[in-house]
């Protein structure tokens, strides 16, 4: 577990986030007055029907789709005030955030290990230690034997594991996952969800997962439900329940 896990500062604090697309007659409110807090080492699920605003919330917190109003604080550092960035967003994402999507989005011309390595090199880690760290992560996620394969040669589950390794590469304080198991069968989907829990608890990263898969909800510490752009109250669960 990293030092970050011992820190009591919340991983995410979102205050009154609102996202409006268009204006006038074409105005669409995708997210309305959403506030939430996620602690370090916590794994939370974001549930809700299509169009509820889950991905909008996730991308707003991920600093790739700024809110129209509201405030985002990550790891105690204010990063967005409405659509105004308070930090260098790209540098902040590089150092503090990890992303996983429905598709693995691995770079097709890089091998599995290089896909992880590139995330480290982007963060100024030298090639040799980056390679070594990438191999460690692949080993941790059980795909070290496929390290030199291109993404095309990997199964969907293996690709997603490499994507998780890439998201973990720079030891982010927050991992955001948008329907990461949608393209996987239920068994592999559950494996990935359990992996998130393992990562969060062992490495102290907060993990926020948008999912439709209610079968794996027991994996999460809490889940939030969204509907019509609004957040219902978060519900605490634990794995034993």
């Amino acid at each position: 577990m990293t030092n970050a896990a011992a820190d009591t500062t919340p991983a995410i604090e979102a205050f009154n986030l609102t996202k409006v697309y268009g204006s006038g007659n074409t105005e669409v409110v995708a997210m309305k007055d959403v506030s939430l807090t996620v602690a370090r080492g916590e794994v939370v699920a974001l549930l809700g029907p299509s169009g509820a605003g889950k991905s909008t919330l996730l991308t707003a917190i991920g600093l790739i789709n700024p809110p129209t109003a509201g405030r985002i604080v990550i790891g105690g550092q204010p990063v967005m005030e409405a659509d105004h960035a308070l930090v260098d967003l790209r540098a902040f994402r590089r150092q503090h955030l990890g992303f996983i999507f429905q598709k693995s989005n691995l770079i097709p011309f890089l091998s599995a290990v290089e896909n992880v390595q590139v995330a480290l090199e982007i963060n100024d880690v030298l090639p040799r230690p980056a390679r070594s760290r990438a191999m460690e992560l692949l080993d941790y996620l059980g795909v070290a034997d496929r390290a030199n394969n291109l993404p095309d040669a990997l199964s969907g589950g293996q690709q997603q594991r490499v994507a998780v390794a890439r998201a973990l590469a720079n030891e982010p304080s927050l991992i955001l996952a948008d329907e990461p198991t949608a393209a996987l069968d239920s068994e592999r989907g559950r494996q990935v969800m359990e992996l998130f829990r393992k990562v969060a608890h062992e490495r102290g990263a907060a993990v926020m997962v948008v999912t439709h898969d209610h079968r794996s909800l027991d994996v999460f510490d809490r889940h939030f439900e969204m509907e019509d752009g609004r957040l219902k109250n978060g519900t605490e669960r634990n794995i034993e329940q």
Binding site: I64, R94, N105, I122
Partner: peptide, 16 residues
């Protein structure tokens, strides 16, 4: 272009 977007998402600098 999709890979470039991914690199940007991961925080790659413009120089890269």
């Amino acid at each position: 272009i999709h890979d470039i977007a991914m690199l940007k998402l991961m925080g790659a600098r413009n120089g890269i």
